[in-house]
Nucleic acid binder design. Structure first.
Length: 510
RNA sequence: CGGGGCGUGGCGCAGGCUGGUAGCGCGCUUGGUUUGGGACCAAGAGGUCGGAGGUUCGAAUCCUCUCGCCCCGACCA
């Protein structure tokens, strides 16, 4: 890593002198390498690029404990915006927030057989407290179904108590073997929604409703296109009847499960004895759902939109939407007071705007710095602009510069941010489409996984053995997308060649 | 958990083979000149070389163990 990085930087530094003179003021993607230091280019080492972006943009840093990371203010501000975007949508459907304990008694955890089996390998246990060994060890929650179900059993008595729609924002712990910042860490932040319903139909409706909320949030706010669908039985949540997911495609061609929604049926209700008296006088088990999204979505945003200059944040979730960089060469006070006035104006208009009036850095340094941090729009304001009542607007997504009149700047900025938001989505969507191909055989899957990667669309007979064979190629069935073709139009199974039962999306996944 | 790579001031690295008590660039501090794409000059501060043992008169360097990070695979959000 170090050697590759070093060589690249030397090369970039050498090239810089030659090209910098030629690249006058006009910014462009072609000039990328000249200005980027400290970030390994994507095509040299993608993983290193990712880690470099995380650290240089100060989103996170490694913590003293293996697999754990510190989410720094720049990263946490993103998460707060994600939370706001999702929380608002959850509440609009009647969901309320609550908080359940971190520690779960072993006996609770063991009740649902499939659930234990699925999570056992990655659970951390508390065995001592107050200097003494505990009589029953306590699991640090890897997910909260069990503790929440135990409470639902106490709270739910009548059909009039239903539905119960509760969500909690918290962190969970899963002892992972290989970790990467945001994508997979030992402890991670998430939300987990847990609902209880009167009928299976109502539970199923909620399961799909929540997946649709995730799809809407991820596509609208994070500008990441996704494939919504159902997980294969092998890939579903441990203890669920079935699981739905939204799958996104990262810019290295690997898929990332971005959120999941589970129909738990009455599996947990039966082992936790969550029964209600229905209007017909009979005792019935509730039907449940759970659904979650995590800080992994930050990793998705980095990998979908980021480039060799660093982070690119979609305006809708950007903690800072525009940064004003004053050029204070001469007439310092005039420029600065104009910049302050501009900041106030834009803030009053509702924009998240920052004025970088630090004296110790040159404008050029600030340009690079804010690009690395992914701020959607830069507003340059110099003596010439003050005279002509204008500013220079520079877009992070494509580097384009334009002059904008000081009057009506609010409208221009609004339109620019909107355009960046939709451009990012369209660009990602185009990438996903260009990296989605139809395959017919295992060999084709294998070749694709080892080659250009991306999504592979094919048919599947539904047998576990065939899914296992797909997994041996390094790819997995990401999901069975909604909107399946008519039974006769499903392609043949890529493994056994028998008539396909499902159209599936496969990919090498994170 | 297997295979590979790397741990040396805040960051990136050199030194290691051939042991002699640590150096470079960036950053940081102070002063000055600068400011439209990572400015310049001068003077400074900062390191028990990841950790623990061992070999040796002497260890960043050699040996053993250990911890961490990164990459590639198997499992997961």
């Amino acid at each position: 890593m170090a050697n590759a990085n070093d060589k690249v930087n030397q090369k970039a530094a050498a090239a810089a002198g030659a090209t910098r003179a030629a690249a006058t003021g006009a910014a462009g993607a072609a000039a990328d390498a000249d200005f980027v230091k400290e970030i390994t280019p994507k095509n040299v080492d993608y993983s290193q690029w990712y880690v470099d972006v995380v650290r240089k943009a100060e989103l996170a840093d490694y913590a003293p404990v293996k697999g754990c990371m510190v989410i720094r203010p720049a990263g946490y501000a993103l998460w707060e915006n994600y939370q706001a975007g999702m929380d608002r949508r959850f509440k609009a459907t009647g969901v309320q927030n609550a908080y359940f304990p971190l520690l779960i008694p072993e006996s609770f955890f063991k009740k649902e057989a499939e659930h234990v089996e699925g999570f056992a390998p990655e659970v951390a246990w508390v065995t001592h407290g107050g200097g003494e060994e505990l009589t029953e060890k306590l699991a640090i929650r890897p997910t909260s179904e069990t503790i929440i179900c135990s409470m639902y059993a106490k709270w739910i008595k009548s059909y009039r108590d239903l539905p119960v729609l509760i969500n909690q924002w918290c962190s969970v712990l899963r002892w992972e073997k290989a970790t990467r910042p945001f994508i997979r860490t030992t402890e991670f932040l998430w939300q987990e929604g847990h609902t209880a319903h009167r009928t299976p139909e109502e539970a199923e409706e909620r399961t799909q409703m929540m997946l649709e909320i995730y799809r809407d949030f991820v596509e609208s706010d994070l500008a990441i296109p996704v494939i919504p669908g159902r997980k294969s039985p092998q890939e579903k949540f441990a203890g669920a009847v079935h699981t739905y997911s939204i799958e996104a495609l990262m810019s290295d061609g690997r898929a990332l499960q971005s959120a999941t929604s589970h129909n738990l049926g009455d599996h947990f209700a039966k082992v936790f004895d969550i029964q209600y008296l229905d209007s017909d006088g009979s005792l019935k088990y509730v039907h449940q759902t759970s659904w979650g999204a995590t800080t992994r979505l930050i990793g998705a945003m980095i990998m979908v939109h980021g480039d060799d200059r660093g982070l690119v944040i979609p305006p809708k979730v950007a903690p800072t939407q525009a940064v004003i960089v004053p050029i204070m060469s001469k007439d310092r006070e005039t420029v600065l007071s104009k910049a302050r006035e501009l900041r106030r104006r834009l803030a009053e208009a509702g924009f998240l705007v920052h004025l970088d009036d630090r004296d110790e850095y040159t404008p050029g340094w600030k340009f690079n710095e804010w690009e690395m941090r992914g701020i959607p729009v830069r507003i340059e304001l110099g003596p010439r602009d003050v005279k002509s009542e204008q500013v220079v607007l520079v877009r992070r997504d494509n580097g384009k510069k334009e002059f904008a009149g000081m009057a009506g700047l609010e409208d221009t900025l609004r339109a620019t941010l909107d355009d960046i938001q939709s451009s990012l989505y369209l660009k990602a969507k185009r990438f996903m489409e260009e990296h989605t191909k139809t395959v017919r055989t295992l060999d084709e899957i294998k070749a694709t996984v080892e080659g250009e990667r991306g999504f592979m669309v094919t048919g599947w007979c539904g047998d576990d053995e065939c899914e296992d064979k797909i997994q041996e190629t390094g790819a997995t069935i990401r999901n069975i997308p909604f909107g399946q073709p008519a039974p006769g139009d499903v392609p043949a199974c890529a493994c056994c060649g028998k008539p396909g039962k499902y159209l599936i999306y496969c990919a090498r996944a994170y």
